[in-house]
Computed example of a mutant assay.
Amino acid sequence: MKFWAALVFGLMSFHSYAVNQNYIGSTVSTIKEVTSYSEYGDGDVVFKLASPEATCPSGYWLRKTDPGFQANLSMVIAAYQAKTSVMAFGLPDEIWSGSKGKYCRMYAISYR
């Protein structure tokens, strides 16, 4: 029984790692700009860090239809207004098509 529990736990851990291995974490920074697009951006939101990370130099983007969009947007706005330090995690292989800059799709955000 212990063998099967260890196997299941190991596979779950491997799956979590395999699914999430493509994101890149930023340096700890504050958010210097938040922009929401309506008609042409379908509700997409982009934000820029005061100290951008080299892989996602323009910032990060969120799609309005993404799961967790409202919670993530609330965290971004609150951090921007309070000048709270954050660490953003982005998917550099999912670049926002609404700009010539390199905005990575946001995977997660955390207050630091």
Rank of each mutant, 00 (worst) to 15 (best):
M106L: 15
E33K: 15
T55F: 09
A50C: 02
F14T: 06
F89Q: 05
F47R: 04
D66W: 11
V19T: 08
D66L: 05
S110L: 15
F69G: 01
D42W: 14
F47H: 03
A50Q: 12
T27D: 14
Q21C: 08
A18M: 12
S13V: 13
S26D: 06
C56H: 06
Y107E: 06
D42Q: 13
K102W: 08
G41Q: 01
L49V: 06
G90P: 13
K48A: 08
Y17L: 07
A82T: 09
C56Y: 12
K102T: 09
I95Y: 11
L7N: 04
P67K: 04
V86L: 05
W96H: 05
K64Y: 12
S97T: 14
S38V: 06
Y103G: 02
S16D: 09
A78R: 13
R112P: 05
S38H: 13
P92T: 00
E33F: 15
N22V: 09
H15S: 13
T84L: 04
T84M: 06
G10I: 02
I31H: 09
F69T: 01
V34W: 07
T65L: 07
E94A: 05
M106N: 07
S110R: 15
L73Y: 11
F9V: 11
S51R: 09
S29M: 10
W96C: 02
P52E: 00
I109H: 03
S29C: 11
S85M: 11
E53Y: 08
G68Y: 14
W96P: 09
A78E: 05
T55P: 06
S16M: 11
Y111A: 10
Y23V: 09
L73E: 04
A5M: 14
E39G: 03
S26H: 11
K64R: 13
Y17K: 01
F47V: 01
E94Q: 13
K64N: 12
L91G: 00
S97E: 13
D93L: 10
A5T: 14
G10W: 08
V45D: 00
I95G: 03
A5R: 14
S36H: 11
A88N: 05
S13G: 03
R105V: 00
N22E: 12
Y17G: 00
W96I: 01
M75S: 04
T55G: 05
Y23N: 11
L49H: 07
L11F: 15
S99Y: 11
F14C: 10
I77D: 02
L73S: 01
A18D: 12
V45K: 04
S97A: 12
S97N: 13
T65A: 05
V19R: 08
A88K: 05
P92N: 00
N20F: 09
